[in-house]
Each structure stands twice: as C-alpha cells, then as structure tokens.
Design a protein around this nucleic acid. Sequence first.
DNA 1: ATCCCGAGGG
DNA 2: CCCTCTGGAT
Length: 215
Amino acid sequence: MTKKERFAFVISYFEQHAPNAETELIYDNPYQLLVAVILSAQCTDKRVNLTTPAIFERYPDVEALSHATFEELFPLIRSISYPNNKTKHLIGMAQMVIDDFNGEIPATVPELIKLPGVGRKTANVITSVVHQQPNMAVDTHVFRVSARIGLTTNAKTPLQTELQLLKYIPKEKVYIAHHWLILHGRYICIARNPKCGECGLRPACKYYQQITKAQ
DNA sequence: ATCCCGAGGG
DNA sequence: CCCTCTGGAT
C-alpha cells in the first residue's frame, strides 16, 4: 500500500465513522479556547474542563486576566500539571495581548507564538479552529497515531509530523483530520495497549501489520 | 511506572 | 539536541 493509498483509506474511514469530530475542550470564544489550550499541555482535556469554569468566571475576558495576580490565579490552576508555569504564562499572555495586540488575540501563527505559553502546537490549534487556516497541530496523540499507522515515516519531532501530514491531507480536511487523529488516539489507538481489535484502520495500519506478522 | 491536545530555556 | 516544569489518572 502506497502512502497515498494509506491516507486515502484513513480519510475515507474517518469521514464515514467520525464526520463531526471536534475538540472536547469546553469554550465559548477565542479567549477561552486559548486559555484552555495553554492549560492542556501534558494534561487531559477532562481535567482542563474541570478548572476552566472558575477561571472564566473570575476572569471573563483577556482584559480581566491581564490584571490577575499570581496569588489569585495559582489556586485555580493548582490541580493541573505545571501550575507554576501556566499561571505565569496565562497572565503574561493576557498582558501581551493587551499591550502589543490591542486586546485582540492574534490570528497568525508567528504572532501567536510570541505570546507566553503559546508554542507551535497551540498556535496551530487557534488558527485552525478560530480562523479556518489549514494548519495541523501535532500533539502527543497526532504524533503517535500518525507514526503507528504509517502516515508519517521516521518523524522524530512534531514539526516533521506536521509537514508530512500536510503533504498528503487536502487543505480543507486538515482541521477535521486533526480531530480525527486526536480522538482516535484518545479512545482507540491509546499509548499503552492500543485497542486494535476495535480499530477500523487495521487494513491500512503498519503497526497492526507488524504485530500480526510477529505472531 | 507511564501517560495526558507542550513550552521555554540551555 | 537536551533538560525541567509538575498533578492526577490508570
């Protein structure tokens, strides 16, 4: 099976079985999405969703967040990973949005990456979800699932995965493909003991071909 | 013990 | 390239 055929199979499968895949982070606007994605580093969406309501209530917009103090915000973030860094990042992000971007959350990857706590992955999520730009955010799930199936070859960094995926996924399907891969990685192609028995991608999956050949 | 929608710094 | 930050779930 060529790489092109592999992509075609995977896209076709997900279009039939997960046509409406979207993020499980809870948010109402770009500000809330940006906060949620910053908090999501090395943390499950479920746990992020437990912490964000209190944050959004106390800091309803980026202006309010820009005036937050570390001592105020830290307790609201205490229960998720890297609370120290994330508290500083959120306040710094809000202050930079107010000071350097007229209170508007930037709409391009180069600008977003300037914000504290915002790296390439987060910038790709925002520009993709909010601004419909064909950018592929590569998180741990996208990285692992793409490698297992064989959508990527010898990708050692998220950036390599991103570029290889963009080469074969049509622009208009990058957004949905990002969520396909994440949700598949979260519920089927999990890191430990993937549920290959429940996976419809088996005919196109390099990983499955390897483990069955080894029997 | 390993993993979760990573980012920043050296 | 490496390392550190770091809590909760499994």
